[in-house]
Design a protein around this nucleic acid. Structure first.
Lengths: 212, 212
DNA sequence: GGATAATTTGACCGGTTGGTAAACATTACA
DNA sequence: TGTAATGTTTACCAACCGGTCAAATTATCC
């Protein structure tokens, strides 16, 4: 009789788990293409294969759906950077970072575009999370500075090094349409990620004057 | 009495020129942040300081405003690539290309974000233009291949070289909020573009094994 | 200055959107 | 199996959105 909104109940039922998963999956489809304002609950409901009020039973507002998605994505999005290890040698670390970021662009392009849409809008809903990001980056910047001091890599600005790796790898998810259009149908196969990986590894290994 | 829509008249009056300029300026503000679907004519009208029907007197539809903007932006957007010269030496050409792209990211961030929004959506309205882009890129790819053959730069995939320059430079416009958040208030001054330029020049000159 | 064309606006319209109310259906569990 | 909690749907609403219309205002040119 009472209306304990799914989101409020402490214990979550099997159905809640399943349906919320389906909804977030559909929401990711729609938000990642149309952005927050451009997406409509009706669209998401259609993709999810359920009625609009049913969606709103699990997530009280459109904002709540978006929020839940962003929170989930942001966390996994930074994993590759967290693994960036001071103990490892620069060549292996940077190569594997590039690889992992490229794999994410290939395997989770919607997540990348969701994030890109959010930043493009001015990131109104993730300012706090950006603060966490800053701290993590600052940490890794020190790792890179240590490498520079030890003479393991050439002098460079660690911040812009990180930015450039983000940019080059996410480009293949966010600007996928453009990449495909430029490469043409023959070069647009899955091989483009392997080609990108080879190019970027070479660029950074030589560019940072890393001595093996 | 008759209603010769501004857009249809052959001769354009002074007022038409002025007002269309004001409208496109306002539309750029709004579209670049909210994307096509997310933007509303009312918002644009408010920014432009005129009534909604007045906007629609100059541009018959929201689509027409967006179209006019995209057409204008795309043209100037590719100028730096057009100037990429086969005769010049690789070091100077690549350096100046990076510089020019970074200047555009600094001076025309809204235009960059408008374009990014369009590509993120799947570029529904600029498929033909992407074809022109492909041809231009193919041209420049040959230039780079010639440099490689002549031993002026190391072996590399020219397509991904171009992609990476696009990505790294546009990043400073499209992801400006993130860049600022990571750099913090002290490092977020205009100097960040100079720092980026230095880093990227070094990265590419060394990374492409360009011998001066 | 007056006729005519160009410009501007308030009022309005049909369709869409985010969200609600309440009745109905299903599930979990004693 | 009964029943209370959970899940689903139909019908609906108020606000908003893109766009129209006709009337009012302003600029242009003789």
């Amino acid at each position: 009789m009472a209306i304990p909104r799914a989101a409020k109940t402490q214990r979550r039922t099997r159905i809640q788990e399943e349906k919320e998963e389906i909804i977030l999956e559909a929401a990711l489809d729609v938000f990642s293409v149309h952005g927050f304002k451009g997406a409509t609950i009706d669209q998401i409901a259609e993709v999810a294969g359920m009625s609009k009020p049913n969606l709103l039973y699990y997530f009280r507002t459109k904002e709540a759906m978006h929020r839940a998605l962003i929170d989930r994505v942001l966390d996994t999005w930074l994993d590759p950077l967290r693994e960036f290890d001071a103990e490892g040698n620069p060549e292996a670390e940077i190569k594997s970072y590039i690889r992992r970021k490229l794999e994410m662009a290939r395997d989770f392009p919607r997540e990348s575009r969701l994030f890109a849409n959010e930043i493009l809008r001015g990131a109104p809903s993730i300012m706090e999370e950006l603060d966490d990001l800053r701290k993590l980056v600052d940490e890794k910047v020190e790792v890179i500075r240590a490498w520079v001091k030890a003479g393991k890599i050439g002098r460079c600005d660690p911040y812009h090094l990180i930015f450039s790796i983000w940019a080059t790898t996410q480009h293949y998810a966010d600007f996928d349409v453009q990449v495909r259009a430029v490469l043409g149908p023959t070069r647009s196969g899955d091989g483009r990620f392997e080609d990108a990986a080879r190019f970027l590894e070479q660029l950074y290994i030589n560019g940072l004057q890393i001595r093996p």
